[in-house]
Computed example of a mutant assay.
Amino acid sequence: MADQFIKTITKNKYFRAFALNGTNLVRQATAAHETSRLASVVLGRGLLATSLTAQSVLKGEERMAIQINGRGPIGNVVVEADAKGSVRGYVTNDKLASIFDENNQLDVAQAVGTNGFLQITKFAPYSNPYIGQSQLVSGEIGDDFTYYLAQSEQIPSVVGVSVYMNDDDSVKSAGGFLVQALPDATDEAIDQLEVDLKNMKPLSDMLIENYTPLKILEAIFGEGEVEILQVAGVGLAAEPTKDAYREMLTTLPAVEIQAMIDEDNGAEIVGKFSGKRYFFTPEELTDVILEINANNAD
């Protein structure tokens, strides 16, 4: 099931704002990777922030890949997303044990680290990739995307993301918002937005109370103060099928496929983004070798 995403503009035309309920996609991603409690929060925040950013800066067939490396124990956070609402990602250390801060809350910043960068690569048809990079400012992910958008995209923005966990380490709720100032935004309006964001109910509380994406934005700007421009679905990108992975194997030298048979009695492919495993028997790999040889003979 796809989660709901909305794109809006404030009635005074000072801001455009995006919000999404990403509970299902974060649940599916963390279940597929069997992530630990802390890794689930980090991965979920990465998926949410990337989804929001993709919807704000991409169009058509464009897509983006983000990498966060703060040199923390979680390792790399890698997420890909497109303009159509598909997203997928993983963290290097998906079994990281819980780390707590002084308030006994999961310490995302320490897990991610701050001695590194957020890098975003944007891909568009028929053009070279665009790579933007900014330093990590907090390791909390939402703040780091906020800083990136201001520095690399020159778009004054605020990104808020939250993943709330159940006692059994499953995902209870996940969602976020992104607010961007438009050219007509006055200094007074921006100052007021900062005040409103500081005074609003915590995002995690709103998600627990089942706030819709629209209600989250109305909690920021006021009831009836935003106009919906788009409602769309956001969900995990489709995993390549076993047939697709077989096609990839046919691009390898036949000697490498034979080594898989001789040394491992088959081959197991693990999808980095999905965690799914596909096993190829010696007989299946022998068929792959026959196809490789036939293609090379043409």
Rank of each mutant, 00 (worst) to 15 (best):
K242D: 06
P125R: 13
V78W: 02
L149R: 09
V231S: 09
N265C: 00
F15K: 11
E247P: 05
I9C: 03
L58D: 03
N76V: 11
I228N: 01
E194Q: 15
G222P: 12
D262P: 08
E62I: 14
S127R: 13
N115W: 01
A19H: 09
L38C: 09
H33P: 14
I155N: 05
N76S: 12
K272G: 10
Q28W: 05
D144A: 04
A185V: 13
N21T: 10
E284K: 10
K276Q: 15
F279Q: 12
T281W: 00
A83Y: 05
Y148W: 08
T92V: 08
V137R: 10
V158D: 05
D196C: 10
V234H: 00
M206W: 06
L178Q: 07
G60C: 07
F18C: 04
G139D: 01
Y130K: 12
V179W: 07
S162C: 02
E291A: 13
E34G: 13
F221I: 13
F279P: 03
I289F: 01
R63H: 05
M165F: 11
T251A: 07
D196E: 08
K201W: 04
E102R: 14
F279E: 02
S51P: 06
A97M: 09
Q180T: 13
E225F: 12
A17P: 07
I269D: 00
V79Q: 01
T23R: 14
M1D: 08
I99S: 01
V26A: 08
T35D: 02
L229G: 05
N210Q: 15
T281N: 01
G160T: 09
P202T: 05
I261W: 02
V255M: 10
D168F: 07
L47V: 11
L207Y: 00
G271C: 03
Y147V: 10
E291P: 01
K11H: 03
L252Q: 14
A81H: 09
T8A: 00
D169V: 14
K11M: 04
Q154H: 14
A237H: 04
L217W: 07
I289N: 01
D169P: 04
A32K: 04
H33K: 13
